[in-house]
Design a protein around this nucleic acid. Sequence first.
DNA 1: ACAGCCATGTAACTCGTTACATGATTAC
DNA 2: GTAATCATGTAACGAGTTACATGGCTGT
Lengths: 180, 180
Amino acid sequence: MSQELATTSYALLGLLAFGDGLTGYELKQRADNTLRFYWVSPAMSQVYTELTRLEQLALVKMNTERRGLRTTRRYHLTDAGSTALREWLARPPAEFPILKHPVALRLLMGHLIDPGMRRSMLDAYLQSLAQRRIELQAVRDSLGDEPAVRFPAMVADWGLDYYESERAMVTELRRRLEGE
Amino acid sequence: MSQELATTSYALLGLLAFGDGLTGYELKQRADNTLRFYWVSPAMSQVYTELTRLEQLALVKMNTERRGLRTTRRYHLTDAGSTALREWLARPPAEFPILKHPVALRLLMGHLIDPGMRRSMLDAYLQSLAQRRIELQAVRDSLGDEPAVRFPAMVADWGLDYYESERAMVTELRRRLEGE
DNA sequence: ACAGCCATGTAACTCGTTACATGATTAC
DNA sequence: GTAATCATGTAACGAGTTACATGGCTGT
């Protein structure tokens, strides 16, 4: 029963565990609101191929609806899907996080960048970081206090703290680059 | 001249910009010491294929050495390679970091995990985080105060601060899960 | 009428991994 | 002599992306 699926597949099953009966399109939207910050938001095309595969594995089932001429497919977790998800969650250990940090990577080669560029790179990063934070804050606000989304809220708070500490660290780095 | 290479290719060029005349094997070791923490450490096989490609693009050149029966290939940056690397570094903006955080992803679905498991997952994460930190600290120590590696040292310090703030946040999360 | 969103998919391709394969050199 | 490390590659595969392709529904 513990067939190896990619983490992204489990992530999609997890989204279905919250809002059952979603279309591929809606699933992508949910992914943009949550997965994007802690994992990745798969491309639309991948969502659809993934759903097809999960259906073949009988982890989700699909209902075809017809509204006028348009066909809409809504996906639900099956019992097998729910079991597979819980088994994955119970299977330790969780892998160590992977960080792909282009700004850190570039700063590593700081001696090849001119000083002004180094500083403006960090400034630009601070700006995009602030933007991201606003986006995550909006998601956090939308979750409110509802017990049903207590864990998503907790993780969103974690993410916000991370953005804050990153902001502080980069600001300090920026200051160190100032004095030269 | 600004042909699009993958970020990992530039990362390898960057490593060659520090220690010129490295073998594929040595390059992999350097990657394990630095890139691993902020980007990814490519598999050995990828290092070799990447070097072959970079050579075809004339961004690196290769010297074949013979020591007894063994053939060793040492790679150096060419002028074109150095230029391509600098151009990439000067080409803003740097992309936003990507975080793949399996622990956060799982906690998102915390309602599907039993409370004991939730706590032990965070405990295990704290442990591997401490381990990682020791590894990065060793790298940092090896860099010392030398001006030639000032930027790698700066980035290593940044990474250490990140591990520390992550430790603090997870410890706090762990505490919140305690009271239930 | 037109824009923007909803909705679903296929095809080609790239990046990167694991598994496979080989063998020399060095230190104990 | 034998284990660890140095050294280089090929083959098969998987995960994920972008580009391509289509078309209905909704609000103004």
